[in-house]
Design a binder for these strands. Sequence first.
RNA 1: UGGGCGAUCGUUCAAUGGUAGGACAGUGCCCUUUGGAGGCACUUAUCCAGGUUCGAAUCCUGGUCGCCCAGCCA
Length: 568
Amino acid sequence: MTTSHTESPELHAPSNFLHEMIAEDVRTKKFGDAAIQTRFPPEPNGYLHIGHAKAIFLDFGLADEFGGKTNLRFDDTNPEREETEYVESIQRDVRWLGFEWEKLCYASDYFPQLYEWALKLIKDGKAYVDDLSAEEIRQYRGTLTEPGKESPYRKRTVEENLDLFQRMKAGEFADGSRVLRAKIDMASPNLNLRDPAMYRIVHATHHRTGDAWCIYPMYDFAHGQSDSIERVTHSMCTLEFADHQPLYRWYIEQLGIFPSQQIEFDRLNLTYTLLSKRRLLQLVQEGHVRGWDDPRMPTLSGIRRRGFTPEAIRAFVTSVGATRTNGIVDIEMLEHFQRDDLNRRAARAMAVLRPLKLVIDNYPEGREELVEVANNPEDAAAGTRQVPFSRELYIEQDDYRETPPPKYYRLSPGKEVRLRNAYFVTAQSLVKDAAGNVVEVHGTYDPASRGGNSPDGRKVKSTIHWVSVAHALPAEVRLYEKLFSKADPGDFPEGGSFLDNLNRESLEIVSDAKLEPSLAGARPGERFQFERVGYFCVDPDSSENRKIFNRTLALKDTWAKIEKKAAS
RNA sequence: UGGGCGAUCGUUCAAUGGUAGGACAGUGCCCUUUGGAGGCACUUAUCCAGGUUCGAAUCCUGGUCGCCCAGCCA
């Protein structure tokens, strides 16, 4: 692949064991002169999450690297859980990550072929129709330490099996009454080889094939063959499928079809995060979050709405790599890569979340001026903008303390600080309400310090941000914290539930934030750094006259750390 | 106690028989018109026991520990 980003080493595909393995296969021409072919094979039964992002970057990234192609294939063999809504969201998410598939495929497109192959196995005496109930089959399967025993129906003749299987397809039998099984080895130490089910009867409407079928292939009887049909050379999946590989190969060998190769890697786990479709679905259905795209969700649609970027996700999954060891990655690692990306790219703006009025007594009433501000100090090319300054400003409540604790550098009585990009200001007096709360601070500014520096070389310990009262844009800001309060949300006492680990304070809505006026034109999805506060992005809930911002991530807060330490 | 897979700083990834290194987190200092960013420094690891070898994280043997598998889910 020709690369246009040699200057960003972290964007290079990682040198991991998958890479080595494929490189070796290319060297030895394991697949002849065929190009590398991979696939990303989600079941359309839920939204994609950050764990899938790892698989996507691996599937598409590795193929790219070796000049190969990647198909997006929906593993839609279970009509009862799959929906078109998911098919659509998955395509949206893959594209958002920056990938375009070679072919869009569906396992359901292969139903006719799969059926033919089942017939072949029956004719070869390698498959049989079993009348045992699900419960009986489970009992006959044996246990981890004891071999199973053969079903009494295992010796049916080819003719009888053919007849029964065709009638299964024709809809003559009820759900669960019969199943087509592969005839392998009921004593195999690998449970997957103890005559696994190939087809089950399900009278359900499939999201694509409708009611054309009432028998559906199992994952094991569909996946390898689908890979083979698409001439997938390297079929990457997660570790829990390692036990299925012998069966994957068995079907391919019995059928004599293209020998796709399955390779397993470790699933991504993150602290304070749940990556189980079943539980994510539960969070949505029970209303613990606002939907699949709630910014607290680990779904790609959720973190996208939260303000995360594909670039950061790529850097993250690259750093995390692929191995065969199961672990849990610290969520702070993901956050680091996101801050790193946004720090370089996000335009800066000034916004006050919890406003406190600051009146500059010696600034002429009615006067206003524009100060020039860099859009991104990390990137001169981002240019500058003009921000209005006037006698009355909003500052952050946290930036003023009547009695400052040790090491507090911000505004307090008699103290001088810098108003970002504007003037030095000194707090002089304050106004309190009946309850004794500070409602207004009065101060004086040094006109000679315009732009933020005093000609006499005087230093201040701190710089605070501000928004002109007369020009302020009111807005709603949604502050997010971790959805779970426990590093392992799945760790709960007997009789409990992962829901007990939900963080009740994961969402805080600030309804009266004050923004600098330039933000009036911000479009949904646009990302900013509110200086000294954090990274934010415009939520699609925003209307023309009321902006809503989501906090992607707070800035690192050294002061909070100092305060915390002092408190302990 | 059947089978499969694995074990390197607190976490994560690397080292492919030859100086155990990077990133995240943490700590301290420097710098800073964001207590952001940046810079410097520090702390901390080869699961255990044997063996092969001039030399082992790496190869071998035996343990130990962890994960996965008994769906007509994927």
